[in-house]
Design a protein around this nucleic acid. Structure first.
Length: 585
RNA sequence: GCGGCCGUAGUCUAGCCUGGUCUAGGACAUCAGCCUGCCACGCUGACGACCCGGGUUCAAAUCCCGGCGGCCGCACCA
């Protein structure tokens, strides 16, 4: 083994393939980049990490879990903004074949701003490139037609190709799309959260980083809805003294990656994090990673700069973990999505996504409203008039007026509303409460990346032997049962112990192949925390030895007390030393 | 997608330059048997590979072309 020369990524990928954690899919046909198959051990490891996420979010915080389709009608991702934003304009040099982001080139050569460039259509990009005589920065060649590369997987639903569908690039939209019903299921109370664990698809241009970047991967999206006027978080008290290591956007602007370590409380007081719920989820994410075996000093939260943020986000932090090959790698994203998604789905679907909150006392106020003029709307929009009028009446008058001033019309979904269709009037009303769109903070985890960092931090070498020191509550196999030698009735006795443990609900493995040392070594490599060995003394007094994977120490105890002690051990209630009497060498 | 390097059993590798002696050698792992009284012991045996497709040639693991895949760099990563 040349473990000195190979980095951990290589070592882990080899081990993963050899022992059955994961490998590249479709190997017999040459493999396909960006797709992975989990084997027996990997599947279980992943399930156990999922279980931890469920325990944290669903059991402890009362977040509701759903499971929804991967394929969605095009409309969903048009509304979410993904069709518009989830693509990059690219141009290819006709001479050398190199490809570049058209917008990046223009930004540099034509000195256009980020926002200006983003608005350009393909046609405009092409003209701008010609006008500014932008040429290939590598060879000076001319460029071909700019083309979009859409990073969503596109398909058609049913036999009609015009029924376009997309593979979801995130699990979040299912939650926003179903918001009405989910809110009802949650008995119409804020705050509340919904989680979805499932596959997502992103047609990455060149995914070459194993579990770190896949085209099909498992995402854990939690959408937490709250009233922006009451952003306070009832968990804050429990977590306010947890520390967070932050790299703030302002440091990044100075070109520094300086880490400020603050408590959750300070981060909020100093305005580093805008929303209390977001700070709390960040603290929970840190705890989760720590429990997966990543030390706090190998974690940080890095704030995204405005132009790095997703289109829906007002403030974003990436939780990063330091890995051997690439340095800091994102494992979760924490975005303040505000009311962006629900608002967009309201505009596109025409379905009201607002919630109602009753005031303690009704208030009489004078307010400005948009009054739809049915006589004008009717002839124009025919059958849809009623629906349009209802939505218009609920729109924010300032927003509508501003749009009239700026553009001369207002876009309600795909309907163009001209100023003469409505009146903006002041009137006195008694309000019993208010309608509003809840705000959302979203912690979002890449489960495959969690699996990877768990493996990397579990990876240890002791006396030239590989040990995967998984935290005991996520180990794919909990106990190994071994006869010291495979003769004299020891295998039969060991089998009895094995069956008893299975019956008690443990994930156990029986192994009698090869010498005892070899079996211990094999078990260490699969990350099995405990080994139970049946020896000649067992036949006399029903005691067995219990071996610790990480220290190779052994203790001895009665078979009869194993179930209770092991249950406590795997729930982290007792330590290895409490499992029995130390064995004298 | 571009450029460089690369692709031989589950893993690591010999052979490739200089085509034939390759029925492709070794080590580790795995399986079976013996052995084994606590950390990859030993012995015997078994399983198991030239990435795919074309071409050149009497003859291709070896030379050429294309594809697929990998690593590194560029680009990309909402």
């Amino acid at each position: 083994m040349n473990s000195q020369t190979q980095d951990k990524f290589t070592l882990i990928n080899e081990l993963a393939r050899r022992r059955g954690f994961f490998w590249q899919s479709y190997e017999i046909y040459g493999g396909a980049s960006g797709f992975v198959t989990y084997g027996f051990l990997g599947t279980r490891l992943k399930q156990n990490i999922e279980k931890k996420l469920r325990d944290l979010f669903v059991n402890k915080l009362g977040i509701l879990e759903i499971e929804a389709p991967i394929i969605a009608p095009a409309k969903v991702f048009e509304a979410s903004g993904h069709v518009e934003h989830f693509k990059e304009p690219m141009v290819e040099c006709l001479k050398c074949g190199r490809r570049f982001r058209a917008d990046h080139l223009l930004k540099e050569k034509a000195r256009l701003s980020e926002t200006e460039v983003e608005k350009l259509t393909l046609e405009e990009l092409k003209n701008a490139i010609e006008r500014n005589d932008v040429r290939c920065p590598e060879c000076g060649g001319a460029f071909g037609e700019p083309k979009y590369f859409l990073t969503m997987f596109k398909t058609s639903i049913g036999p009609y190709s015009e029924a376009v569908g997309y593979g979801r690039p995130e699990a979040a939209q299912n939650i926003f799309v179903e918001f009405r019903r989910l809110y009802e299921n949650a008995r119409e109370k804020l705050p509340f959260g919904v989680m979805q664990i499932g596959h997502a698809l992103r047609n990455e241009i060149s995914p070459r980083q194993g579990l770190i970047r896949l085209r099909e991967f498992t995402i854990v999206d939690v959408e937490f809805f709250f009233d922006p006027e009451e952003p306070n978080c009832y968990l804050l008290k429990d977590l306010e003294n947890e520390t967070l290591r932050l790299v703030l956007a302002e440091s990044k602007l100075r070109g520094s990656e300086e880490i400020v370590e603050v408590t959750v409380k300070e981060a909020l007081e100093k305005g580093f994090i805008k929303v209390p719920w977001q700070a709390v989820f960040m603290a929970l994410a840190k705890k989760l990673l720590t429990e997966l075996g990543v030390p706090a000093e190998k974690q940080r939260f890095i704030e995204k700069l405005p132009w790095e943020r997703a289109h829906y986000s007002l403030q974003s932090f990436d939780q990063e973990v330091y890995v051997d090959r690439w340095g800091w790698v994102e494992v979760s994203g924490h975005a303040y999505r505000t009311d962006y998604d629900l608002k967009r789905h309201m505009q596109f679907s025409g379905v009201d996504t607002r919630v109602f909150k009753e005031y303690e006392k009704p208030v009489e106020i004078e307010k400005t409203v948009v009054k739809p003029l049915m006589a004008k709307l009717g002839p124009k929009f025919k059958g849809e008039t009623q629906k349009i009028a209802e939505i218009l009446a609920e729109m924010n008058p300032e927003e509508v007026e501003e749009s009239f001033k700026k553009k001369g019309y207002y876009m309600l979904g795909e309907h163009k509303i001209l100023p003469e269709y409505v009146e903006i009037v002041k009137c006195k009303v008694t309000e019993k409460g208010k309608h509003f769109i809840p705000h959302v903070v979203e912690p979002s985890f890449g489960l495959d990346r969690l699996v990877y960092v768990t493996l990397e931090y579990a990876y240890h070498v002791k006396d030239d032997r590989v040990i995967l020191s998984f935290p005991r509550d996520i180990a794919p196999i909990q106990v190994g049962v071994y006869p010291l030698v495979s003769k004299d009735g020891l295998p039969e006795k060991a089998m009895q112990v094995y069956k008893m443990l299975i019956d008690e609900g443990f994930i156990a493995e029986y192994d009698e192949a090869g010498s005892i040392g070899r079996r211990y070594a094999r078990a260490d490599e699969a990350g099995i925390p405990l080994g139970i060995t049946i020896d000649y003394e067992t036949l006399k007094d029903d005691t067995v030895t219990i071996r610790d994977r990480d220290t190779w120490r052994q203790v001895r105890n009665k078979i009869a007390v194993l179930p209770e002690l092991l249950h406590k051990y795997f729930r982290n209630k007792i330590d290895f030393e409490d499992l029995g009497e130390p064995l004298k060498e």
